Simulated assay, not measured.
Amino acid sequence: MEALEMTRPNPAFWSGKRVLLTGHTGFKGSWAAMWLARMGAQVTGLALPPDQEPALFDLADVAHVVASSRFVDLRDGEAVARALKGEAFDLVLHMAAQPIVRTSIEDPVATFAANVMGTAHLLQTLRGRAELQAVLVVTSDKVYANNEQGRAFQEGDALGGKDPYSASKAAAEIVTQSFARSFFDKAGVPVATARGGNVIGGGDFSRDRLVSDIVRAGRSQGQTVLRHPEATRPWQHVLDCVAGYLVYLERLATDPAAPRALNFGPRPGGAEVTVGELATRATAALGAQPWRHEPDPNSIEARSLGIDASRARQVLGFESRLDAPVAVDWTMDWYRAQAEGGDALNLVRDQITRYESLR
């Protein structure tokens, strides 16, 4: 498939925009916050304190990169309303979530509270704001009812979820659609969802994520343990994913006919990479010990997962630029440089600059 002339976030659009970004203390949220601030957006971050140690939010001092950083629990509707009372925003990017499948199995009720009611509380608070131009709610590639047939999911496929995380994100889709149709559409404010693939990139130190597990094992001279090395995932670099979200939000704000749900994942036609293949490349890049396989008989994680991002290509002129092997290389470059004393904020900015120069 012929590569597109790359559509990328437009600094002229974002400069001066008042942006509410939830989840700015997380891995993807920190990258989004730094990129938005770099383009001149006035970013207000709303999230729980980081739950990672270390955390990219702290390493890059994101609290002082954005215009305002506020620690608020979106599960508390009154706290959300108080935090945003009297505030005016042009655009909203809702990324806050409980994002880990295994955590959702350990504590399903808290996961539903964060991902479903957190979304409802935010949308309720944003109702009736005349200055609002568009809202984008980030969900997941796991919102689809996965029958393990190996087919890449498209936006019109049925929603589902056999684990609490996946189900909570599918439910967040329904909540978002209901608020949009009942309230925001009438006010002329587009509200949409973005379904992103499995994201990798520098600065992710979450537990139970493949790359962060590899980095921790490598730095401690340990060995990475894989539960499902044969599983496939729609791997995507964080810059590709965040770029897609920002391009989509721009379009929502300027084109009333923009679709209300889009997939973001690997470039259509890109090579499928298994968990084991990605781990092999990552451990080699770090000079870490080879991974080992320890099956988990109680796991309900999907073996096959793919999403079709061709509609984003057709509608937005956007597609991922970093195929999985390159995404792994960029990710490991970041971790190696950071371990050698590199400043996390500068490392992020350098990769954004490098990404922006791609053709």
Rank of each mutant, 00 (worst) to 15 (best):
V43W: 03
L48P: 14
M1C: 12
Y144C: 01
Q338Y: 12
G203T: 04
L249K: 02
G287F: 15
S310C: 03
S68D: 11
G156I: 09
A172N: 04
S68E: 15
G201H: 04
Q223N: 08
L262V: 05
A158Q: 04
T280P: 00
E2C: 10
D333N: 14
R251S: 03
A3N: 14
R292W: 06
L249Y: 04
T283Q: 14
T119G: 04
L249C: 12
P234A: 04
Y335P: 05
K85L: 10
H237R: 03
T44E: 00
L246V: 01
E173H: 09
M39A: 09
E148Q: 08
I100R: 08
Q236Y: 00
Q289D: 15
T103N: 10
D61K: 11
A167C: 03
K169G: 01
P234G: 07
A172W: 12
E319C: 06
P325H: 14
L126K: 13
S206W: 15
I352C: 13
L210Q: 02
D76F: 12
T7V: 11
S304R: 15
I307F: 01
A337T: 12
Q351K: 11
G341M: 03
E294V: 07
R267G: 11
V72S: 14
N115F: 05
V116L: 11
P99R: 11
A187I: 13
V66K: 00
R127N: 07
D157K: 00
S140A: 04
G203M: 06
R260P: 06
F13T: 07
R349P: 05
L226Q: 00
V80K: 00
L123T: 05
Q177S: 10
A96I: 04
L305V: 02
G118A: 08
L46C: 02
D58M: 08
M34N: 12
N115S: 07
T193M: 08
R349T: 05
L4N: 15
V92G: 10
A83N: 05
V65I: 10
A180I: 13
T353W: 12
